[in-house]
Design a protein around this nucleic acid. Structure first.
Lengths: 214, 214
DNA sequence: CATATTATGACCAAGTTGGTCAATGAAGTG
DNA sequence: CACTTCATTGACCAACTTGGTCATAATATG
């Protein structure tokens, strides 16, 4: 019944993360079938035997990663301040959480994105069962309690939200790329936030009624 | 010296495209090393022998695809109306070209995007040599002769352009997805254009001085 | 009919796959 | 110290896939 051998949990956290990240990377980059357990153990600098001691087989490892990444997403939801009704502040919040998590698990979201697209028969039904329902529920939850009356009356709010999402995504990608080169800077978060506010301001100008601009 | 056997060019165009698309798909999805020639011939419904008759080996096939996709991009450049100085019209133009091309070659851009990221030693230097220079030159050319004075004075034009790009990209992805389900609709192009104009209008409102809005 | 061209897929050696397990190492206990 | 326990290792395995070949078959040309 249990997918995992308890020895995995006895590992120190950094080693666990190393393994998880190596697996995230491999599965995200090549998909379930082509993902190589050899590559994973090499990247994680553990032995083949250990991997199959921690996880009984490739499939169980994959399922564990699904569960784990879903937990990570859940955590983001829990961190969201649902009292905040301003969409820009809400998005700023979410984007920040994501960035923070991506420092620990650079490939979680890539992994999840790849998982929903996964075609391998060995895991497809499991994915469908575990991820798909949460995806819908998640985006709904994400934008709960937002005050849409701030938007100009002549604007199509749904489309504006799409633009906002695409911008956030693009900005996030760009930020992640910069983070890779600037590794370790604690101040990066602050600069990142300031930069985002500039982009947000540009959009706000087009989206919001004047009285809500400042 | 020649990368290709002339027999490939004697094939009728649709068969050539079938092979090219199968190869685009496989290389884009899995990268050079893991791409399987077996999968390609299966997807293209030709025999293994034929593939290696047309192209001497896997590497030559890949290089041919690079050249081919670069040609496709070049064609887009050639179609651009550089008299048009309005950035929204320019982008609209480019987006439309892309959509048109993606009907024929759904994965060209995915293939190119994957190629610039490619790490396989067998082809890395070739890619670096062929693609990288064109990428820089390309984006410069793309936005040649644009009238930036239409932008509001208090706006950071560079950031606005990024938002515009992210929006175009997001919108394009969404459109491509719809196109897959709506296959064969000739009117799709027109509807696509109308939809885009709605998104563009929202952005324009934030970006442009009032007198340039209509 | 003969000749030339194109297409095929069984076949190959070389390599990779997910997974196993006897042997080794490390840590703790008394 | 010996003895036990448990985590870790990597050589090893059969099964399969890899890029590529080539004798044969099909088709086209004349």
């Amino acid at each position: 019944m249990f997918i995992i051998n308890s020895t995995f949990f006895n590992l120190n956290t950094s080693k666990q993360e190393k393994i998880i990240n190596a697996a995230f990377q491999e599965f995200a980059a090549t998909g379930y079938d082509k993902a190589s357990t050899n590559s994973i153990v090499q990247e994680a600098t553990i032995s083949k035997g250990s991997l199959f001691n921690y996880f009984h087989n490739k499939k169980d490892l994959y399922v564990y990663l699904i569960d784990y990444s879903l937990q990570v997403v859940e955590e983001i939801y829990n961190q969201i301040d649902f009292q905040e009704t301003d969409i820009f502040k809400r998005i700023e919040n979410i984007g920040f959480q994501k960035l923070y998590i991506q420092q620990k698990y650079p490939q979680v979201f890539d992994f999840l994105a790849a998982a929903v697209q996964e075609e391998a028969t060995a895991v497809k039904s499991i994915i469908q069962h575990k991820i798909t329902p949460l995806y819908k529920e998640g985006t709904e939850k994400m934008y709960q309690n937002i005050d849409y009356t701030k938007f100009r009356d002549d604007i199509d709010v749904e489309k504006a939200m799409e633009i906002l999402n695409w911008t956030m995504f693009g900005f996030g990608e760009k930020g992640l790329h910069e983070l890779k080169t600037f590794y370790g800077l604690e101040e990066f978060g602050e600069r990142y936030l300031q930069k985002w506010k500039q982009y947000a301001a540009i959009l706000k100008q087009g989206f919001y009624k004047e009285k809500f601009l400042f």
